[in-house]
Design a binder for these strands. Sequence first.
DNA 1: TTGAAAGCGTTACCAC
DNA 2: GTGGTAACGCTTTCAA
Lengths: 348, 348
Amino acid sequence: MNHKRLKRRSSRESTRATLSDVARMAGVSAMTVSNFVRGKPVGLNTRKLVAEAIERLNYRPNLSARGLRLSEEYSVGLVIADNDPAFLNDPFISRLVSGLSNFLSNLDYTLDVQGVTPERFNNATILTKVGNEALCAILCGRRSLRYQHLETLQRLGQPVVLFQEIFKSSSPNVVIISQDDSSGGKQLGQYLLTKGIRSLLFVRPALDWCAIERRERGLRSVLAKASVDFNTVIAASERYEDVQRVLKEHLGKRAPDAIVAATDSMAAAALKACQTAGLRVPEELKIAGFNGFDVWRYTTPTLTTAVSPAYEMGRHAGELLIARLRTGKFPTRNVVLPVRLQIGESTG
Amino acid sequence: MNHKRLKRRSSRESTRATLSDVARMAGVSAMTVSNFVRGKPVGLNTRKLVAEAIERLNYRPNLSARGLRLSEEYSVGLVIADNDPAFLNDPFISRLVSGLSNFLSNLDYTLDVQGVTPERFNNATILTKVGNEALCAILCGRRSLRYQHLETLQRLGQPVVLFQEIFKSSSPNVVIISQDDSSGGKQLGQYLLTKGIRSLLFVRPALDWCAIERRERGLRSVLAKASVDFNTVIAASERYEDVQRVLKEHLGKRAPDAIVAATDSMAAAALKACQTAGLRVPEELKIAGFNGFDVWRYTTPTLTTAVSPAYEMGRHAGELLIARLRTGKFPTRNVVLPVRLQIGESTG
DNA sequence: TTGAAAGCGTTACCAC
DNA sequence: GTGGTAACGCTTTCAA
């Protein structure tokens, strides 16, 4: 008896009321309290007694106990493998997480976020222990590493949604949600053709990232058919300074009719580089980017961009996972969401 | 026997190996497996047998069971009360969450995110059930509602960190972390005085948000002493169009020497409004904002801004919570982190 | 409508 | 080093 109390106090949590504490105080059985808490029918008198006891003891059900009993966690895990400690600053990721978290919150599911460096991916608690009913993963980093991660995820034997991944999954447990970057590239290319460009410079980061390759391929495919002169230049990173450095060198030669950057923030950097070099945008040179998050709106002129459905991707992941949990299988295999062209001032 | 198996299969999860499954396969007791898993000393032979069984059965420890047994969850909850479903898009919030999540991930803690509308705050699972050892909360919305939320949080009897809140907490369980917005306003004011301004327009959203009041008060206090003409104009919201609308009306009269906006994105909108009105920035009019997240860098000219330590605030919250969990009490009461002035081109 | 018992997967606490 | 036992808080099952 006393023993019990002592044990509980030894934990870090201050002692918490349990179902039986409430039952004892209300003078009913634990089951009655449990029924009350879960909205099952309970006698009118008992009802009042129990409600009062709960209030007085400040009782809240213990999710671990319930989860253990039911093998249901009402929680989805999200692992983000990224070298940047501030991974959520990436607007793609933050929108995606918003969409996911929102959808799950509405269904009273919780989202469990864990960021991890690609190297330590396999040791992430969220993967080595079981605490979620399903998982989502955003993998950044080198292709070979990502492939290992995918295999790790497949072995888990849990429903998993992956984002923006190039690999096909061979497991019925794994679904991949992507955006149609290739179409984004094509739309941008077709639009620029209507502006009569004859040469184009594509600026991309060194990074091994499949979305960017798809953007470039889509763009190139359209422009090649029209025999537009297509060149690619690689910046050390997505960072402002790196883009400006590489462009400064390049603009010294002969300026192209248009610059398309792999992301809007790179496009913004390119824009400044051009303006600094005395090139008028869009009159002498058109500029466009990808993503459509926020940057486009703050530049002068505003940017033309292929808008990413990041928020929708997160939301969609939530839908798929919940459907999978409820019905036992994913309603679809891989999903590709559309990208939309948004015209700004930077392409005249 | 069979009965057991059937029960397990009836749950949504596909059947998962447990400690005793591993024990049985390895021909040892459950305790030995448990010891192995947790890195306690285990005989060399046994070690191999157990490792193999774990691999073969794809065993992963169940967090609910461990949590129940130990009353430790290794998980911190974060509730965000916000009307915007895409709450994480707010760069202040996303940075804060990055900092928090990162710190926790390094200690193998998980972060449990739940967004909720202010009206439904009290019903958020994360508050009504116990599944985390500690909580963080970001409260948006009307002051009276926020005050209720604070009371809810205090009643929880769990360690709680709140951000950017105006109320003082009377509970030893609750710590509030803020940024020194008032100082940010003063720094900006002092700097602008060195530029010789004689009149200033402060642009703020209608929103009832304490940070903004502190910014305004800090700014005003410095400028009042120097008898600078100080006016405030209120935009319907933080949104681009709302800021531009309200400024267009105002600039029609007599333009001030400087405009300071409550946030950088509002400052960016103000900047465009001024440029559209034919005012040269910074020559005829200086502009500055608050936050320093990303916007400042994309505008032309770049913005002078008071930089928010949002990432640090999240990190700090993690530190305080972990200290609290380990030592039983918070090492400090309320915390105010410094804001730093960053000079851009918009103030000449 | 209410209650008693059993068990979910794990670990602390002894014994051996 | 190893293993048996009991308990964490809850809900399903079955009986009253």
